[in-house]
Nucleic acid binder design. Sequence first.
DNA 1: AGAAAAACTGACAACGATGTCAATTGTTTC
DNA 2: GAAACAATTGACATCGTTGTCAGTTTTTCT
Lengths: 346, 346
Amino acid sequence: MVRMIDVANHAGVSLKTVSRVLNNEPHVQEALRNKVHESVKELGYVPSASARSLRSSRTYTFHLISRSVEGNFVNTVQSGALRASQKYGYNLVVSLMTLDTLNDPTELKTWSQNFLSQKRPDGIILVPPYSDSPIFNDIINDAGIPISRIGPNEIKDMNNVNITIDDSVAAKEATNHLLSLGHRRIGFIRGYEDHGATHKRFKGYSDALQEAGIKVDPSLVKPGIFSFESGMNSGLQLLAMENRPTAVFAANDDMAAGVIVAAYRNNIKVPEEISVIGFDDSELAARIWPTLSTIRQPLIKYGEQAVEYLVNRAGNKSKNDNDKPSWTDLLDYEFILRESTGPAAK
Amino acid sequence: MVRMIDVANHAGVSLKTVSRVLNNEPHVQEALRNKVHESVKELGYVPSASARSLRSSRTYTFHLISRSVEGNFVNTVQSGALRASQKYGYNLVVSLMTLDTLNDPTELKTWSQNFLSQKRPDGIILVPPYSDSPIFNDIINDAGIPISRIGPNEIKDMNNVNITIDDSVAAKEATNHLLSLGHRRIGFIRGYEDHGATHKRFKGYSDALQEAGIKVDPSLVKPGIFSFESGMNSGLQLLAMENRPTAVFAANDDMAAGVIVAAYRNNIKVPEEISVIGFDDSELAARIWPTLSTIRQPLIKYGEQAVEYLVNRAGNKSKNDNDKPSWTDLLDYEFILRESTGPAAK
DNA sequence: AGAAAAACTGACAACGATGTCAATTGTTTC
DNA sequence: GAAACAATTGACATCGTTGTCAGTTTTTCT
């Protein structure tokens, strides 16, 4: 790691001068200021938070205190991770990154390097779509920090763990449920194309249809971005078809809720005239009418397992398990039958 | 602050022995181990995280990386606070406390002291119901840490800030909306009794009725705990009344969603036969059918303002503003008209 | 019983920054 | 032109822990 003294040497000034520049203290000539800033940039220096706060007794940290609200995906995973972290005497921090950053390789690299050298976490937990980005995973791996990846993905880095349910099998079960109710024309709404989940869930849907001897009809497969609005839009399209489907499988609950509202707007009854099924058992699922049939992932357990793995790795830092490929920790999902699915209309 | 050396002196052992005990290292006699543990407890010692991680280059911290999901109250406030924190070079950490801890004064004291001496935040942001607890606020104040309190409350500590909308005025506007649609029998569902919001919102409801010359009918006021289920239960009760209300004002959106489902279950049409109005403009509000009329709080701005204040305080640590009473930063709310409210049924 | 090994304990350096204070340089004043 | 003063710069101590290593005591083995 590059230290402040390295910057000082590189810039040909004293340690203290660098410190002054970085803390915006007065009494440094403009010329030196610039030289220091250049050296900082060139060496990629980032101050160590621990050293700073040890010496200055300021942490440069604010805490927002709240109770854990188990609602959406991330909050619930966090809740499980938090409990496990506390059990082992670790802190858990949620760090936010914008999607723009994730999708711009240059920016991603800068962000990650700053993040890693400033925070120096003992381990990192990634949720979709971060767990799906090979570049990002490589950067963290190169820094030698263990990763727990949550969600379906195909990354086979060395030495990390993937924690997920079998999305394909789950999606297949959901589709089979619709088939068993007599549905033959079943629509599907996809999610973000760079989420592994989208492809696995679609695969499950296709597999179920094919095994039932039904060809996948591309006109029944619509795009989506996992949002309510995108679900409603694709739902409106499906419902406007001449030969509209009798059931719709949306790749997540938000989109399924969108389909239900689309049905209301067209005076189509759910589930009498159209069945709707989602994925995730989100907060929404039990709070809308009709309540939503869906697949529940063991989110709390995701968080717990992620931490268990990291604690283990942190404990055995020196251990020689450096060349194992990463493996997958496959957990059980749960099919939740509610009121949005029913027998196919004749 | 009590340091490791203090523990060592108190226990009559060397610094290193204390370190060994606390890190569960071998090679310490049982007797000494116990003595050290006793001293730690007696002195209330908590190790300094910065010193630990500076020396050992382990942070005892895991990071969960995700994008900011602006959905529920806390997440959205956090999102605003995060943006502002980054702007000023501060970190933002979300710390979770259970409600059990908050409600048990003894446990609360222990938790807070551990938390404060381990994390030593430069500032603290409190959201309901934490911002409503005088005991908790006192503890933090005594530690000399600045607080931004979000949400309506009556705490007038020295030297902190309350950030809120005027819940009473907002609730009054919501109620007036219903009155202007011709409603005369309007139900109200309360929230947690230890949330300031419950009382202020109820006050706005009462005020509006009284100004319209309508007496508050206690049988139309039902309890709730801000949850979907509690809203549904109270909703079912209101709808089962002989002379049922033509409108219901729930103190938050989750409960309002519960009332809507209660209506569906009784085949009562919203808004034709009963209007429903919520509070918060939560994620749910635009995703259910009918979409929910509600009050929107400037959550992002809450977070931003909270941080602005703390940054200011942190910068002027020495400044002599120590005896100002805390003041209230009153922001604007927004009334959101959607489809769950309509003219009163005859 | 004596030697070797193991277990225990503590003195001291080190982590990477910032705070204090003294040394140096530059500027103004008479 | 010398003295007084202000601005700039750096040497060194320090924050509170853990790592290294050496010294001391206890246990084990022949």
